[in-house]
Write a protein that binds this DNA or RNA. Structure first.
Lengths: 254, 254
DNA sequence: TGTCGTGATCTGTGATCACAGTTAGGTTGG
DNA sequence: CCAACCTAACTGTGATCACAGATCACGACA
């Protein structure tokens, strides 16, 4: 009989908040209970998602469960769960024999993805134009300003531009008021993220004077006018221009 | 040192195929190498997908990892992986404290899902009408015949109708020639599957004389004419009629 | 010098164990 | 007879171990 000594296990879960004053009623206790229950697997998933969306993981790059587990300071299990989820969304792919890697999109796959984005995100833009509030318009305008500032800086702040561009688009999609639609678009962005942002990093010239700023301006104007057709057109122009640039410059196989 | 005796572990992986005749050239060796590498987790995922799509798992039903593992004759690990994937697609949901269950759609969530289906599947129908081949039209017609036969039987063969309906729709979507679009629609069906098919089982009267047969007929005619707009309209009518029926009869919360 | 075998190493996959939290059921106290 | 507590069973999560297959590099043979 070997007495299983249990070495210290790292506890990343923060303990629950101390209860409110015992003298007072349970007023504050009603609002807790949710959040704060984040699983390690979810944390790793969020981390990998961020890495993919921001293009820090290049297409074709191979991942090792043990390596990322060690890098993130967790065991292999949460990483397995995260990779399973992302692989289900085709944001990662597991080769039959060996290794998990960031998928490399062929040219035709990229075109197909772009066409789907035009349909889905175009629809979201229409709905957003119908339901957008003044506060939401202001938020989009704020992200647009941040994007222009990052693009006009010298040298252009590519990482800030990527973040601002994403925030702008998703502020728009949130305005549509359809949660599952936003989640669907997030999946699409996760698949397209690696090439899109990898390209933006390598070609910062596209930012200033590019078509993105004029498309964003047209989008903002369409939102202010509550014009669904114009909003869709502005977004379609934005996506199309970016996709065309990618197709010209990025080395897509096939 | 305790000599770890390892008890017999079940090996479900079938061994590789015996190589072709050594006398002949490497002619047959080129075609093998793929397939046959199905992981246990994928098998369980496929099993659970089928159960969800066919409505054998009702909304709100709770699952236990250990129970389904025992039922499928595997360990808990592959089930965990399968549930992780399906939860990532929102086809299952894990409650914070306890248990994993089939999501119950609220009325507004169902309406949102239906609207997204109209956009995405309508687009797929358009593309299918543009690119459909004669063989694919014949396949759709075959599934349409099977659907009508199942609907007109006395009593109506609901399970066969569900299968034929699904086969018909996906034969159409395959004709669009966009793989990731088909995968996206599969995810949508996985979320809507439980209520849709649960309803079809309880209300078989909807099948005969219903709007599905006329919508399918219109769809087939549109395909034969290569008329994208008509194909989209037929599909929109089909989905809308089914959704309206669900909203009238199914007990949707909220 | 080029090429094929071969072993060490690393890969994902599956199983088993430990644990904290929750739920349900039964018993006890009022 | 009702309510509250308390215990026992079950939940998902995380960790660790074992294993088959794949990859890669080094070395021997032609």
């Amino acid at each position: 009989m070997v007495p299983r000594v249990q070495p210290s296990r790292l506890q990343l879960r923060s303990v629950g908040p101390s209860q409110a004053s015992p003298t007072g009623g349970p007023s504050a206790l009603d609002q807790v209970g949710t959040l704060l229950h984040e699983t390690l697997g979810e944390r790793v998933t969020r981390e990998l998602r961020s890495l993919l969306a921001s293009g820090r993981l290049a297409p074709g790059e191979k991942l090792s469960l043990r390596r990322v587990a060690e890098a993130l300071g967790v065991s292999m299990m949460p990483v397995r769960e995260a990779v399973s989820r992302l692989a289900a969304d085709k944001a990662l792919e597991v080769l039959p024999g060996r290794a998990v890697r960031v998928p490399v999109l062929t040219r035709s796959q990229f075109r197909e993805l772009t066409r789907i984005r035009l349909v889905v995100e175009g629809f979201a833009a229409e709905e957003a134009a119908k339901n957008v509030t003044a506060a939401q318009i202001a938020e989009v305008a704020r992200h647009d300003a941040a994007f222009r500032a990052a693009a006009k800086a010298d040298p252009p702040d590519t990482v800030a531009a990527v973040v601002a561009n994403r925030d702008l688009h998703f502020a728009l999609y949130e305005a549509a008021g359809m949660q599952s639609l936003v989640e669907m678009i997030e999946r699409l962005w996760l698949k397209a993220g690696p090439i899109l942002n990898l390209d933006m990093r390598h070609e910062p010239r596209r930012l200033d004077g590019g078509s993105a700023v004029v498309a964003h301006a047209a989008l903002l104007e369409a939102l202010r006018q509550r014009d669904p057709a114009a909003a869709r057109k502005a977004l379609v122009d934005d996506i199309s221009a970016a996709a065309e640039h990618i197709e010209r410059t990025a080395p897509l196989p096939d």
